[in-house]
Computed example of a mutant assay.
Amino acid sequence: MSTRTTRTGNWGQDRRLEFIDFRLMWEGRLNRADITAFFRISVPQASLDLAKYQEIAPENAYYDRNQKSYIANASFKPVFATFESNHYLNELIGLETGILSPSESFIGWVPPVASLPLPTRKVQPETLLDLIMAIKNQRALVVDYRAMRDEPSIRTLFPTAFAHDGHRWHVRAYCFNSEMYKDFVLGRFFDIVESISPSSEVPVDTEWETFIDVVIGPNPDFSMNKKMIIESDYQMDNGEAKIRIRKSQYFYLKRRLNLNENGEPVNESQQIVLLRIEEPLISSGDIEHE
């Protein structure tokens, strides 16, 4: 799932300085026209922004009269932008999928890119709106929800949060019928019957409130060279990488990464394995999901 790149600057000069920093870092150059076209400001204002940037980072760029552009020096170090590949790549995917419009992205020259589309999961906007309002106003909902293993049923839920497992959206909710928290797939709500006040006090969702570190490592059966490749690919430190998640999301992470509870590789080509779950420990049973 792609995520939006968070900008640190506001809509004033700070944001324009971040834009200058971003273009110099990822594209190696920019000129006044880049700034005026993106922000719809005057040439004098763009000149002031460039002067301010050079005052802050005098060694980052120089003006090339032939190209009529500012060129990044070999010693360039970002001042405002985040020097993380994922920020650029997420923004690239955002442009390709339409999540971001060109006016929202700092990327100027866009390299060829393709993303693998997944089947669209149907979520009725009216249902989503009802769930949002229920969470905001702390209301319970009487719903017609169709779980895969159950007959159609009317149940009362107290929605508390949304969660994405990398494939589909769920709403986290306390189910008054089963008296426990569960995850409900958004596309399986057939009707929101009514919004009501909770009939009783709703307990704390300890599975949601608790964070755990899922520690992964390379397949122990791999050669030393393959282990080194996996460690580099997953940014491991001493053969380990930690993924911090809510305890309620562990079931989905385990399924997505194809991890065995016992730490053994699922098959000989399995690249990563589960090393351990760091405190607080999670029970071996899967979370309840609908």
Score class of each variant (00 low, 15 high):
Arg188Val: 00
Leu274Ala: 02
Pro44Thr: 06
Leu186Ala: 03
Trp169Ala: 08
Gly239Ser: 06
Ile35Met: 10
Val202Asp: 02
Ser42Ile: 09
Tyr252Gly: 09
Gly94Pro: 03
Asp165Asn: 15
Ile99Val: 14
Ala74Gly: 01
Asp205Glu: 12
Arg23Thr: 06
Arg15Val: 07
Ser248Val: 14
Val123Trp: 04
Gly9Ile: 09
Ser42Cys: 10
Arg276Thr: 10
Glu151Trp: 03
Asp21Val: 14
Gly12Tyr: 07
Ala140Thr: 02
Arg15Leu: 15
Asn73Pro: 00
Asp213Gly: 09
Val123Leu: 10
Val110Tyr: 08
Ser2Gln: 11
Leu118Glu: 13
Gly28Trp: 06
Ile132His: 10
Arg244Gly: 06
Phe158Val: 12
Pro218Tyr: 07
Phe251Leu: 15
Asn73Gly: 04
Phe158Asn: 11
Asn90Asp: 14
Arg255Gly: 13
Thr160Gly: 09
Gly9Trp: 09
His289Leu: 15
Lys247Ala: 13
Leu129Lys: 13
Trp26Gly: 07
Asp34Gln: 01
Leu89Asp: 04
Arg256Lys: 15
Leu128Phe: 10
Glu84Phe: 06
Gln270Phe: 01
Gly108Thr: 03
Pro198Cys: 04
Asn90His: 12
Lys77Asp: 05
Lys122Gly: 00
Leu281Tyr: 11
Ser75Gln: 14
Val43Met: 15
Leu30Ser: 05
Asn219Tyr: 07
Asn177Trp: 06
Pro111Phe: 07
Val266Asp: 08
Glu279Asn: 12
Trp169Cys: 07
Met25Asn: 11
Ile216Phe: 14
Gln54Val: 00
Lys182Leu: 08
Trp11Ile: 15
Lys77Glu: 13
Glu151Pro: 03
Ser223Arg: 02
Glu231Thr: 02
Ile56Lys: 03
Pro117Lys: 06
Ser69Pro: 00
Ser115Leu: 02
Asn260Val: 07
Gln45Asn: 14
Asp191Val: 00
Pro152His: 06
Gly217Gln: 06
Gln270Asp: 04
Asp183Asn: 12
Ser103Asp: 09
Leu141Thr: 01
Leu257Val: 12
Met133Glu: 14
Glu264Ile: 05
Val123Ile: 15
Trp11His: 15
Lys226Glu: 09
Phe80Leu: 10
Gln67Val: 00
Ile277Leu: 15
Arg16Val: 15
Asn258Cys: 13
Gly217His: 06
Gly98Val: 06
Ile277Gly: 01
Tyr234Asp: 00
Tyr63Arg: 02
Met133Lys: 12
Glu231Tyr: 00
Asn10Thr: 15
Glu278Ser: 06
Leu50His: 08
Thr5Asn: 11
Asp233Thr: 11
Thr8Gln: 13
Leu275Arg: 11
Ser197Val: 04
Ile192Glu: 00
Val202Cys: 08
Phe251Pro: 08
Ser115Asn: 04
Arg244Val: 15
Lys254Thr: 08
Ala72Ser: 13
Ser153Tyr: 05
Lys136Leu: 11
Gln54Thr: 04
Glu59Thr: 03
Leu253Arg: 13
Gln54Glu: 08
Tyr234Gln: 01
Asn90Ser: 10
Glu194Asn: 02
Val171Asp: 07
Ser2Lys: 12
Ser223Gly: 02
Glu290Lys: 12
Pro102Met: 03
Leu95Lys: 03
Leu89Asn: 07
Glu264Lys: 12
Leu259Asp: 08
Gly187Asn: 10
Tyr250Asp: 01
Glu278Lys: 09
Val193Cys: 01
Tyr62Asp: 00
Thr160Gln: 15
Glu279Thr: 14
